[in-house]
Structures are given as structure tokens and as C-alpha cells.
Design a protein around this nucleic acid. Sequence first.
DNA 1: TAGATTGTTAATCGATTAACAATC
DNA 2: TAGATTGTTAATCGATTAACAATC
Lengths: 209, 209
Amino acid sequence: MKKQKISDAVIHRLPRYYRYLDDLFNKGVVRISSNSLGSKMDITASQIRQDLSCFGEFGQQGYGYNVAELRSEIGHILGIDSGHRLIVVGAGHLGHALLQNFDFQKLGFQIDSAFEVSPALIGTSIRNITIRSMDELEEYVTQYRPDVAVLTVPQHVAQSLADRLIALGIRGFWNFTNVELSTQEPGVFFENIHFADTLLTLSYRISRS
Amino acid sequence: MKKQKISDAVIHRLPRYYRYLDDLFNKGVVRISSNSLGSKMDITASQIRQDLSCFGEFGQQGYGYNVAELRSEIGHILGIDSGHRLIVVGAGHLGHALLQNFDFQKLGFQIDSAFEVSPALIGTSIRNITIRSMDELEEYVTQYRPDVAVLTVPQHVAQSLADRLIALGIRGFWNFTNVELSTQEPGVFFENIHFADTLLTLSYRISRS
DNA sequence: TAGATTGTTAATCGATTAACAATC
DNA sequence: TAGATTGTTAATCGATTAACAATC
């Protein structure tokens, strides 16, 4: 096991490994070699072994990898078993869609609560999650200390809301607004979902082929 | 201008360039150097010049780039002015959220129509887009020939729906289901939005800091 | 003109792939 | 045991950064 900084390229492949292993696991596959996993995922066996070697030795010569074991090891590396908790900030259409459809639990996240400004939504609940007033944010976060905030609010309030939440101790943002958030605070992370960027990438590809 | 294959890394940076230039443009900024754009975007000036040189010569020595001009050049490269049309397949919460909030027009896409299986939704409309029955898909696509399909349907129908749509001539998929779609058909592109992957990346980061 | 800044070539850095000894 | 497959080192490939002549 090499002890060094893990590159972004490797980090971004981890969830995909997990996804494939979870799938194999659910299909009852017991073992897999880097070679056959590689051909399934359309990457080289070499890359898989190289990537995994950043975190430990999970295979066995002549055998390959035990699917259940490797799945749970990668899950662990990703922090699926860390008991993270999150709040959803903004319960408009998109927030609602996530609350309704997204399986947070499967990724090890517990939804603590949701917050909204719209009076029509405050007090209602979606899948047992009560939607609270945005005014209660400070009190709630201070008391319950969730780790992550899902931001599904209008663009123009995104950065100021993020600042508020960072001050309250939120350390991760799953940011669905189309602005890039930033902070001076160390140890705070943003995952920006730029819908528009991906649609433009698609636009680029279909425009020249 | 170098005439060679454009790398994925460059392609994925283009929408971000566009986003920043659009922002500068809307703020009325007239000119910008690779240096100051680089510090705004937190990348090197060298990278910007290198990236742009794949597509042409858009700057001027001693001056920099005209914001309006570079913005529209990159927009053109991305195909924003190609008059692409799309359909939304699946009008559940997520499809609804996109129809309601997402500014397709700004990216040069026109929404043609939306399709659903749920009888409760068929015949209703969102922002002037009528939701049709999934049964009308073949007829509609054959007749109007949209370029792109937004897939916001349950996972287990995603691949078969994609196959149907590819057969009908759809060439791009903005895929919000958490499965990786594929096809033998050349000239068909998938942009997969894997929500779970990005949340796991965030989970990884906050788990070790 | 002098200063600024481009586009491009060359140098560096990092990531991917290949090769192979170790070993189950 | 023999065959398979790992983890790791070395080789290659590609992407980023630096440098600079050209020129507005």
C-alpha cells in the first residue's frame, strides 16, 4: 500500500467501483478478477489494481477479489458507514424530488430535516421528513449538528446561505445551484452539480458527429 | 490552431468557460486577459490559452480577449446556436423540477414535449409543455425528430427506453437514472448524471479531514 | 514607441498502461 | 503442482505548465 496523496482521478472512480461491486453483490457474484471487472467497466485491469493499491491489499493472487469484501471495503473508504447526517435546504421542486426519490440511506446518509421559506410548504412533510421554516436553521443546526447540507435553493441566495451554514459547522455541500460556492474555511467541501454544464457537453458532442 | 482530437479534459472545461464568460458579459465586462480569467477560475492562464488554441485564435496580443466575442465563440463551439430540440421522458418529481426550473432556452435547447405513463399527469402541462402518454412516443419522435431525450424515468426501464429512442433517431441522452446506458449505435451520446456518485465523493472527503 | 498579452513550442509533471516477480 | 491473478515497479503516454518570440 502506497501512502501518498490520493489523486482526484482515483477518488472520482471510487463511487463507480462501488456501484459495480454493489450490483455484482446483489446478483450474488462471489468473486471477480481485476480483468473481468475491468472489461465490465471498460477500463484496464491495471488501473483497477493501481487504484485499489492506494488504499490497501484487497485481493488474493490466483483468485481475484471477493465481491462482498471489496464492496464493503470501498464502501468504508467512501465513508458509507460513517453515519453522516444531512439536511435539505430548499424544498422546491428539486428538493422535493430528492426527498421523494433519492435513496440517501443506501449511501449511508440519514436525512435529518428539510428547510424552506415558502409558507405553503412549512409544516408539511415528505416521507416522514418535516419541512421547517428557514428561520429555524440556526437553532436546528446548532443543536443537531448535521454534517452535510443539500442546497436546492435559488442561485442568488446560495452563497450567503452557505456562509451561514459553514458558520454553524456544516462541512459538506451537495450544491444543486448553478453557482460555484467557495469559502476560506478549511475542511469544508463542495460538490457542485452543474446541470447546465453536462447538458452543454452533450450539446457539444451531438453538434459535431 | 492545432487540428487534432480534442481531449475530454478540454471538452469538460468548455461549459465552465462559457459560464464565466456569460457572467462577465452580463456584468458588462468588455475585455479580459487569460491571466485575469485564470485567477477568477482558479486555473492557469497557460491552460486557458492552450485550451482555446484547440479551436482557433480568439485573442489579440497586448489586449486579451473580447468578452462578448469569446463568449459567443465558445457558445458556438458548444452548439448553443444549433437549434437542438429535446423531449423530457418521465414527468415525475425530477422531470417536473427540470421542466419547471431549468432554463433550457439559455443553453439553446427547445423543449418539444414531455412523456409520462402516469394517467394522472397525461394531458396536464407545465410551463406550456403538454405531457403526453408514453404510447405516443414512437409517433411523436418519428414525426418531429427531436435530437435529445432527457431521461427521468425509473432505473429498470431506462435501457429499454433508450433503445426504443435510439431506434427512432435520438442521438443524445441526458440521463438522470443511476444506470449507465450503452448502445452499439455510433453517433449516440450519453451524459450520465450520477447523483449518488457525487454524494459519495462528498462523503469521502468529509470522512477524512 | 513600450508594455501587455497572445499563440505555440518545449519542459515538466502526473496518470495510465505494461510487465513481471511473488504467491495463492 | 500448475494456472491464475495479484501488487508493484518501470515504461509510456497525455495533460499541464513554463517560456518566449511575435505583435497588437
